[in-house]
């Protein structure tokens, strides 16, 4: 059992989303940073789709009331145990009674906390993801509050072997972590690759050039549904109405005011604004870690290149999963031994 001592700004249970119900208007949702979520699960021997906690900007304080193997991936939200800064992107073993304290964001915006076994919440339409607007999924359809308790399911054999090793300290870290080939280079200024959108040719030549040349600022009205971007105003060659059709995560749609909206995890299933571009899926984790005020630019990429990059990433993740499975014994490092 884990007890929430302080909930943080917005801490929700997420998985890989409510896939398969978009035709009924059901929002997919799921982890904003798919990669961090998946890697956190792989680090603790879970299926990559197991529910994790998505922790946003200002983190919670969480008390583990039983021994657990956890991993924290994604943005650096200053996680500590008794003042020791916890390393990210590696398995951590915490003993019963340990309090994991998160603080503010030092890098990125969202951290993912996986526990071996996966957080135990009911599935709604095949997913554990919290969708706040409809009040479904996750822990009672809402963000975590102080006093909530969350259980986790039985850890897999790998984590059980790790838990069976003798412990020296309240928290210990594995002596290895995920390679930098897999970890995204989260920055407050990013350039991401985009594929031309279905209505790219509706825009003026100047607007299309400006779109790729400019740097856009993430607006204050940005959340899990989408980011409002401030930069050059983009205009259509002539006024045109789009009949509503599907949108997806990473879609850049442009309402009549000319300021693009970058749709994220909790986007609607369909939209009626012209779509100038679509962020390549492999680059979405960089977008997921942006905060209001951060900056983003868009470089054109071909569909074939985007799909090649995606397949390479999936191969890398498969290799990571296989490597972790081959590590039943770890020489755990306690705070003292880590220095």
């Amino acid at each position: 059992m884990m007890r929430v001592l302080r909930p943080g700004l917005l801490t929700t249970v997420q998985d890989l989303g409510r896939v398969g119900h978009q035709r009924h208007g059901v929002v997919v949702g799921g982890a904003m940073d798919e990669l961090a979520h998946r890697v956190a699960n792989l680090m603790v021997g879970n299926d990559e789709a197991a529910p994790t906690l998505e922790i946003t900007l200002v983190g919670p304080s969480l008390k583990f009331e039983a021994d657990a193997v956890i991993a924290i991936c994604g943005g650096d939200l200053s996680a500590t145990v008794a003042g020791w800064k916890l390393p990210l992107w590696r398995p951590l073993r915490v003993r019963a009674g340990t309090v994991v304290d998160f603080g503010g964001a030092r890098q990125g915006c969202r951290a993912y906390l996986a526990v071996a076994g996966g957080w135990d919440v009911p599935q709604v339409l095949g997913s554990a993801s919290t969708y706040l607007r409809a009040g479904i999924g996750g822990h009672q359809g809402r963000a975590l509050q102080a006093g909530d308790t969350l259980a986790w399911r039985a850890p897999g054999p790998l984590a059980q072997a790790w838990l069976a090793q003798a412990a020296e300290d309240a928290v210990e870290a594995a002596p290895w972590s995920v390679s930098y080939q897999i970890r995204p280079d989260y920055r407050p200024q990013v350039r991401v690759r985009v594929i031309a959108g279905p209505q790219a040719d509706w825009f003026t030549e100047e607007s299309r050039e400006a779109f790729h040349a400019a740097v856009f600022t993430v607006g204050s009205q940005s959340d899990r549904m989408g980011y409002r971007l401030q930069g050059p105003t983009l205009s259509l060659r002539e006024p045109r109405e789009l009949i509503s059709e599907a949108v997806t995560m990473g879609t850049l749609q442009v309402p009549p005011d000319g300021n693009p909206i970058l749709l994220m995890a909790d986007r609607q299933t369909t939209g009626g604004y012209a779509k100038i571009a679509q962020v390549a899926r492999v680059d979405l984790p960089l977008v997921a870690q942006l905060k209001p005020g951060d900056q983003i630019g868009f470089d054109p990429v071909s569909l074939a290149e985007a799909q090649r990059a995606l397949r390479q990433r999936e191969r890398d993740l498969n290799e990571l999963a296989a490597a972790v499975r081959g590590l039943p014994g770890i020489s755990w490092r306690s705070r003292a031994r880590a220095g």
Binding site: H21, Q22, R23, I243, E245, A246, T248, T269, T270, R311
Partner: peptide
Amino acid sequence: ELVPAFTTVTVFYDA
């Protein structure tokens, strides 16, 4: 999955 709309069917696939 599929997303049918007024004039379109969008087919989501595993790339």
